[in-house]
């Protein structure tokens, strides 16, 4: 199988700070891949670098056989890459509906109403809050909106940055179930960044561990879950 996304020795800097120090990873079509790592490891930077902000200082990013290393941020959606970024970044002074419409900004108008229906079926809470200003929604609702907005562009590759952040345990389970559903039913490939390593590795086909801007370990979700070092470093919470 050829990789949908392949990142080759990518470095990224913020001024003098080198946040990614030669990262390589691949994501195959139809997979869910988890990326775990401590705070400041460079996980969010990696997702943003895939989208071109910051641009990779070195290395190559290949998507669907095409080198996208220098591509502009606003051209990513056209390629089929959508991101629900760190901190959700919903538009606070727009309604829920408008946020979803923004997700379909470049999409075909004819698909809009059908896609909205699907999003409301996936997240019934969003349907109830359709005309509420997004900034006044609860953290969990905003998270659903951020994922829903990313899906509105009908992506082939979905980049999710900590979708479970700040959610109650019940909601965490629900969000992960939804990600699985999106992946299975709609065939969307997912690259998932998570602090919640246990859930993420259980869900994912494969996983990577990022330490200080470098990939330290990789393998199937299960093999990483069973690894004693990983258990000590990332699963100390006592899951499973």
């Amino acid at each position: 199988m050829t990789a949908l996304l392949s990142i080759e020795r990518v470095k990224a800097r913020y001024g003098p700070v080198e946040a990614l120090r030669g990262v390589s990873l691949t994501v195959d079509e139809g997979e869910i891949v988890a990326l775990i790592g401590a705070n400041g490891a460079g996980k969010s930077t990696l997702l943003m670098t895939i989208c071109g902000a910051p641009k990779a200082a070195e290395g190559r990013i290949v998507y669907a056989g095409q080198d996208i290393t220098g591509t502009d941020l606003h051209d990513m959606v056209k390629l089929g890459i959508a991101q629900s970024p760190e901190g959700r970044r919903i538009f606070p002074r727009m309604t829920v509906l408008e946020n979803l419409q923004m997700g379909a900004y470049l999409g075909d108008e004819r698909n809009l109403s059908g896609d909205l229906e699907r999003m409301f079926a996936l997240f019934p809470r969003l349907a109830e809050r359709k005309y509420q200003r997004a900034g006044t929604m609860s953290g969990g609702e905003q998270q659903m909106l951020a994922i829903g907005r990313a899906l509105m562009s009908r992506p082939r590759l979905l980049l999710l940055d900590e979708p479970s952040l700040g959610l109650a345990p019940l909601l965490v389970a629900q969000i992960f179930a939804t990600i699985r559903e999106i992946n299975r039913a709609q065939g969307v490939t997912v690259l998932l960044v998570e602090q919640n390593a246990y859930h993420a590795l259980r869900l994912a086909n494969r996983g990577y561990v990022l330490v200080n801007g470098e990939i330290r370990m990789s393998g199937t979700g299960q093999s990483l879950l069973d690894d004693p070092d990983i258990r000590k470093a990332y699963l100390a919470g006592g899951h499973g």
Partner: peptide
């Protein structure tokens, strides 16, 4: 309005 509220996110959406 999206550019007004979060330019980078607006770009990320196309």
């Amino acid at each position: 309005r999206a550019c007004e509220q979060d330019r980078k996110m607006a770009a990320l959406l196309g």
